Simulated scan of single mutants.
Amino acid sequence: MTRREGAVSARRTYIPGCFAIAASFTLLACGSDDEGPRAGLGYEERAVLDVKAFIQTNLDDLASAAAALQAAAPEADEDGWSAAADKDAVDAMKAEWKKARQAYERVEGAIAVIFRELDESTDARYDAFIEASGDADPFDGEGVTGVHAIERILWSDAIPPAVVEFESGLGARYLPAAFPATEAEAKAFKRGLCARLVADTRKMQSDFRGLALDAPSAFRGVIGSLSEQVEKVAKAATGEEESRYAQYTLADMRANVAAGRLTYDAFQGWLLSKEGDAAAVDRAVLDGFERIEEAYAALPGDALPPVPDMWSSGAPTAEQIETPFGQLFSLVQRESDDTVEGSLVRSMIDAADLLDIPEL
């Protein structure tokens, strides 16, 4: 299965042994060398502890948002529900969906490694599910599941034409997105699809709490998430982008990068304790984050910029590259490329190598 498969440009201050960030996120795991369970721990143990606390906080937020989304779903009546007839409830569900999305995108690098099946059931795209098994009932919590299955219903009256064109070409298993149109469908949405998301997110929340996180999952996992940035932009041209129904993919990407920055902050003290190229690698990583954060912050809203007509990621024209979408694509293409010296992903890999963090 192909892996999927806010402007939150969090300004952070590095503090040895902990990390602090702006109000967008929670201050985690900070303390003096003599406080609590951190006392006597080395750089690696402290870094992993910080990242684990950050992931756990976001999994708690994810499970809470999933439960709130389910609770906000309208009570079923004979004609189901819609954005017009049940506007307050639909708006509330959309708000909780965005909270869930932000929480998940901050931790997907590690979750995709640690909980592969739960990651797929929670975050895989419609086309991946359809190719695997189809979906006879979009509301029942079987077949197509997770945040994008719910997103597809909540924004079913505002799906971009390119997305409809792409999905309608998936074959006989494709079903047009729609709000629940009957009492049975409305009940299934709340007690089936939403309940499945609640169950999956609570399992991640619970299972992770007792997990001994390791450095490869914590650090290399987030590198994988950063590497996917270019895919998330490129797929917009064909209607295959990640949060395609809500037009929320740029917000997803901001959350990925914010999580990458937080993870690096946790490991930075350990890196700087090394000799040799550590300072240069640290500078390269920080520069990479600055470039991509500034570019994301300069773009308005939560959606990717409009794709230029006749766009081809393999051979865009000079005129296309000068558009906001073209500039964004060029940036993430470079920063996601592990073969480009000085790119963000290459520099993060260099940091992992200096720390002797094994590959996943």
Rank of each mutant, 00 (worst) to 15 (best):
W270P: 04
F267D: 00
R346K: 15
A280S: 14
A71F: 08
F267K: 02
G17F: 05
V332K: 01
A318V: 15
G210W: 06
F179D: 01
A65K: 06
P306I: 01
R254S: 11
E5P: 12
G288E: 07
A66L: 04
A63H: 09
T339K: 13
G260Q: 05
L262C: 13
D157C: 07
K87P: 00
M93K: 03
R202H: 13
A10N: 04
R38G: 14
A22F: 12
L272Q: 11
G31D: 02
A352S: 11
S24W: 03
Y126W: 02
D350S: 14
F54Q: 03
V107Y: 03
R291V: 09
R38K: 14
P324N: 08
K52P: 03
K99V: 10
A251G: 11
F329I: 07
E142V: 14
A103T: 06
R46Q: 13
R12K: 14
F166N: 04
R116F: 06
A84H: 06
D309W: 01
F289Q: 07
C18F: 02
Q333N: 14
D79H: 14
L49Q: 09
L175G: 03
A258G: 13
R11A: 09
K99M: 07
Y104D: 01
R106T: 03
E151F: 09
V345T: 14
P305A: 04
D137E: 10
R12V: 15
I15F: 09
A351P: 04
D309F: 04
A184S: 14
E241I: 01
Q320N: 11
E44K: 15
S156W: 03
P161A: 08
Q56I: 07
A22Q: 14
A124C: 08
M93T: 01
S168D: 03
E322F: 05
S347K: 11
E183T: 06
G6S: 10
E142A: 12
Y296M: 11
K190G: 06
Y264W: 09
I292G: 00
G301K: 05
I292N: 00
E228S: 12
V285E: 00
R152T: 13
D265H: 09
E120S: 09
E35F: 11
F189P: 02
G171L: 12
A63S: 15
E228T: 12
L59M: 13
P324D: 02
E242Q: 14
S32W: 12
A188C: 11
